[in-house]
Simulated scan of single mutants.
Amino acid sequence: MAFSEFEQKRYEKIVGQYIDARRPEPSARKDFDLGFRISGQSVEIFEIRPHFQDRSNIIETPVAKATYVRPKDTWSIFWMRADLKWHSYEPDSSVKTLDDVIKVIDKDEFCCFWG
């Protein structure tokens, strides 16, 4: 089940503020930027950059994903490994709020999200 309109707007605001704070200067955004999308019960954060061989081809590289588990009223946090599959982020695989998700991603204790 997708988020309600109210939830969608609230989550867009929370993640949007985080992304805005981390984005590079406007002059650098043609070479590197950050974005996010909300789809279904998940929020995904990704890097945006032109392909190194063909700058007209824009590539999105996943950074983090959080999925809301409604029956448990928690958020599950994932990171993408080299096998290009989402894996549960340990030790903080589940948190209570989207604000907590942002804190975990920002702290990036094991360098899984931001390198």
Score class of each variant (00 low, 15 high):
I14S: 02
L34A: 04
T97W: 08
V63F: 05
A66E: 13
Q53M: 13
I14A: 06
L34V: 05
Y11D: 03
E5P: 00
W79N: 10
G35P: 02
K9E: 14
K65Y: 10
H51N: 15
D54Y: 09
N57S: 05
Q8F: 15
I14T: 09
V63Y: 11
V104C: 09
L34Y: 12
I58W: 05
H51A: 04
P91F: 10
D99K: 15
V63A: 08
I105M: 06
E44F: 07
K85A: 08
K72V: 01
K13I: 01
I45V: 09
D83L: 11
Y18M: 07
H87D: 09
S93E: 14
F32A: 01
D20Y: 04
Y68D: 11
G16M: 06
R23V: 03
G16A: 05
S76V: 10
V101A: 02
P71M: 00
D54W: 02
R37M: 11
G115P: 06
I105Y: 13
W79F: 15
D54N: 13
E47F: 01
W75P: 08
M1S: 07
F32G: 01
Y18F: 14
P62R: 14
D20R: 12
F32V: 00
S56Y: 06
I38R: 14
F110R: 15
F113Y: 14
G35T: 03
K30I: 03
E5M: 11
Q53L: 15
D108C: 09
D83V: 00
D83Y: 12
F32P: 02
